[in-house]
């Protein structure tokens, strides 16, 4: 499938698996995971420095050919998210930004209303905006109108590894959205990623399930293969589902 690149904003991606840098036991594992998975875009976060702890520069662990997707995690309002996005771009992270505005600290549900406000502001400033959202078609259409480069509905709560609990809502988005739909959050194992891709999602974003696996590089590769398998299946158009058997060998007796 040579002609199956995913275009988001000005960039084309061969890999439909996007990854994250959170929760790795050691930052050294990140470049290994990227090499094994072939992921071409990875999220990073921005935080106040803890003066009592040693600080590493996360960006040093990300090869230059991988697109940085800074997130606005920690933002509780549109204004905070805008501020984080501008800082990330100013320091050379590029134009891609994952909008994450969260006030619910138990389930980490994104606030679609604030997310829409941020998208309107940042798209006008030339950012390539990828909003993390609750799967809801009307909001997705408004995000598109506001200039979002993709929409990223959640499968289940961040880090929960529960898989795609919002399946039908995401299917409605896939059917009706014109920008790419990236299933983000909750994908806990490769089969979840394959399921998302079989549904017709354009890409998946996986962090916790890879980062906290015993072998993140191998799990990254497993997710990459599953993402690819699901994409192939979607493109191949799956066979129909029936209730009763449909013989795959001739039904006549062997010698009669």
């Amino acid at each position: 499938m040579e002609n199956d690149k995913l275009k988001i904003g000005p960039k084309e991606f061969s890999s439909r698996l996007f990854t994250g840098t959170g929760k790795f036991a050691s930052n050294d594992l990140i470049p290994k995971m990227l090499a094994a998975s072939g992921s071409e875009m990875i999220t990073v976060a921005l935080r106040r420095i803890d003066f009592t702890a040693a600080t590493e520069n996360m960006l040093e662990y990300i090869p230059k050919n991988v697109t940085l997707l800074p997130n606005t995690s920690g933002a509780r309002t549109a204004e905070e998210a805008v501020r984080i996005a501008r800082i990330a771009r100013e320091v050379g992270c590029g134009d891609f930004i994952k909008i994450e505005v969260i006030t619910d600290m138990k389930y980490l549900m994104p606030d679609n209303f604030e997310t829409l406000r941020v998208t309107e502001i940042l798209a006008k400033e030339g950012f390539v905006v990828l909003p993390y959202m609750l799967p809801d078609l009307p909001t997705a259409k408004k995000l598109e109108d506001a200039g979002a480069a993709a929409v990223m509905p959640l499968g289940s709560p961040i880090g929960s590894n529960r898989g795609i609990k919002t399946k039908e809502l995401i299917e409605i988005m896939i059917e009706n959205c014109t920008v790419p739909v990236v299933v983000d959050a909750g994908l806990g194992k490769p089969s979840h990623a394959a399921a998302a891709m079989e549904m017709g999602a354009d890409a998946v974003l996986v962090n916790t399930a890879i980062a906290t696996a015993h072998d993140p590089a191998m799990m990254g590769k497993a997710f990459a293969m599953a993402t690819r398998a699901g994409r192939y299946a979607y493109r191949a158009k799956m066979a129909t589902v029936g209730k009763t058997a449909s013989a795959s060998s001739p039904l006549t007796g062997f010698l009669r």
Partner: peptide, 10 residues
């Protein structure tokens, strides 16, 4: 002054 750094995040 806000002194920030890039950290891991999803």
């Amino acid at each position: 002054l806000e002194i920030l750094s890039f950290v891991g995040g999803g």
